[in-house]
Simulated assay, not measured.
Amino acid sequence: MEPLVRVEWDGPVAGLTLNRPARHNSLVPELLAELLDALADLRRRPDVRALVLQAEGRSFSTGGDVRRFYEQGDGVYEYASGLVGQLNRAVQALLDFPVPVVAAVHGIVTGGSLGFVLAADVVLVAPEASFTPWYNVVGFSPDGGWTALLPALIGPRRAAEVLLRNLTISAREAVEWGLASRVVPAEEVRAEAWRVAAEIARLQPGSVRRTRRLLRAAWGDVAARLETEHGEFCAQIVTDEAREGMRRFLGEG
């Protein structure tokens, strides 16, 4: 079995690759468990000086696997609580990671997977990359930092309109609004992420750590805001609206 999260190395730079391409790297407990384990292992390694986050396949990640949610039936609350709890821990682990995180983003990013992008320090996007919430279409409540982190980056009014109207943020808009660092040609985005990470890894590690810590201080109590998202997601997932929304989204019945 191929790992759902692949760990790679290039000198002092470690790479984590989401590796569920047949399902667009959608989030399931198994993938998030592997991601959390990999982050915990790398955190203990003093030789890691920078981290690259990337993905295989056509999409970076399409958020929670709606079919998995739908298949839970009466157990959907417990499943959702566990999954969003894992996602929150992964986002927090990236935010708290001791070295900078560089994300190479291509294709579609939807739902809670945006949290991985929000938690990165440098975000390089391919021209076709896009970011769409989908919550109000499927009947879910936002998770992964769409309300906890995104407004601080792009502004509360923009975040509100994107979420309430289910708008797509293009790669160009992501850079202009502050969600991403810059657009890189699709065939170069991963190599450029590794190059940037290697450049950071050559700098003075203590200075880099303190800089990152000072920049992160402005986020405030992210954990509490993510936990609020967690509670609202679980409350919404058990409604008839969510059940019907999932059924329509999947084309069931």
Score class of each variant (00 low, 15 high):
residue 3 P to T: 09
residue 5 V to H: 11
residue 7 V to K: 08
residue 9 W to Y: 12
residue 10 D to E: 15
residue 11 G to S: 07
residue 11 G to Y: 06
residue 12 P to Y: 11
residue 13 V to R: 07
residue 19 N to G: 00
residue 21 P to G: 04
residue 22 A to M: 09
residue 23 R to H: 11
residue 25 N to I: 01
residue 26 S to D: 11
residue 26 S to H: 09
residue 27 L to P: 01
residue 27 L to C: 04
residue 28 V to D: 12
residue 32 L to A: 06
residue 33 A to T: 14
residue 33 A to V: 11
residue 39 L to V: 07
residue 41 D to N: 02
residue 41 D to H: 04
residue 42 L to Y: 05
residue 43 R to C: 04
residue 44 R to T: 11
residue 44 R to N: 09
residue 45 R to D: 15
residue 46 P to L: 05
residue 47 D to K: 07
residue 48 V to G: 05
residue 48 V to K: 03
residue 49 R to L: 02
residue 49 R to K: 10
residue 50 A to G: 07
residue 51 L to M: 05
residue 53 L to W: 01
residue 57 G to C: 09
residue 57 G to H: 08
residue 58 R to D: 14
residue 60 F to R: 04
residue 60 F to V: 08
residue 63 G to S: 06
residue 66 V to F: 11
residue 68 R to N: 05
residue 69 F to W: 12
residue 72 Q to V: 01
residue 73 G to M: 09
residue 73 G to F: 10
residue 75 G to Q: 12
residue 78 E to F: 12
residue 80 A to L: 09
residue 82 G to P: 00
residue 85 G to F: 07
residue 86 Q to W: 04
residue 87 L to S: 03
residue 88 N to D: 14
residue 88 N to Y: 01
residue 90 A to E: 07
residue 90 A to C: 12
residue 93 A to E: 14
residue 95 L to R: 12
residue 96 D to W: 03
residue 96 D to L: 11
residue 102 V to C: 09
residue 103 A to T: 08
residue 104 A to K: 07
residue 105 V to I: 15
residue 106 H to F: 00
residue 108 I to G: 12
residue 110 T to R: 15
residue 111 G to Y: 02
residue 111 G to F: 03
residue 116 F to W: 13
residue 116 F to R: 01
residue 118 L to K: 04
residue 119 A to R: 02
residue 119 A to C: 02
residue 120 A to W: 07
residue 122 V to Q: 04
residue 122 V to T: 13
residue 129 A to L: 09
residue 132 T to V: 14
residue 132 T to G: 01
residue 133 P to N: 06
residue 134 W to S: 06
residue 136 N to M: 08
residue 136 N to D: 11
residue 141 S to I: 00
residue 141 S to H: 13
residue 143 D to L: 12
residue 144 G to K: 03
residue 146 W to Q: 05
residue 147 T to K: 14
residue 150 L to P: 02
residue 151 P to R: 02
residue 152 A to P: 00
residue 153 L to R: 15
residue 153 L to C: 02
residue 153 L to H: 05
residue 155 G to E: 02
residue 155 G to R: 00
residue 157 R to T: 10
residue 158 R to W: 08
residue 163 L to W: 05
residue 164 L to S: 10
residue 166 N to D: 15
residue 168 T to M: 13
residue 174 A to Q: 10
residue 174 A to C: 09
residue 175 V to Y: 04
residue 178 G to F: 05
residue 180 A to N: 10
residue 181 S to R: 15
residue 183 V to Y: 05
residue 183 V to C: 08
residue 188 E to G: 02
residue 191 A to V: 06
residue 191 A to E: 14
residue 191 A to C: 04
residue 192 E to A: 14
residue 193 A to V: 05
residue 193 A to E: 06
residue 193 A to D: 07
residue 196 V to T: 09
residue 201 A to H: 09
residue 204 Q to P: 13
residue 206 G to A: 14
residue 207 S to H: 11
residue 207 S to Y: 10
residue 209 R to T: 12
residue 211 T to C: 10
residue 212 R to F: 03
residue 213 R to N: 07
residue 216 R to N: 10
residue 217 A to R: 14
residue 220 G to S: 02
residue 221 D to H: 10
residue 223 A to R: 15
residue 224 A to Q: 10
residue 224 A to P: 01
residue 226 L to G: 01
residue 226 L to Y: 03
residue 229 E to S: 02
residue 231 G to N: 12
residue 231 G to R: 15
residue 232 E to C: 08
residue 238 V to W: 03
residue 240 D to N: 10
residue 242 A to N: 01
residue 242 A to D: 00
residue 242 A to K: 00
residue 245 G to M: 12
residue 247 R to H: 01
residue 248 R to N: 05
residue 250 L to R: 06
residue 251 G to F: 01
residue 252 E to P: 00
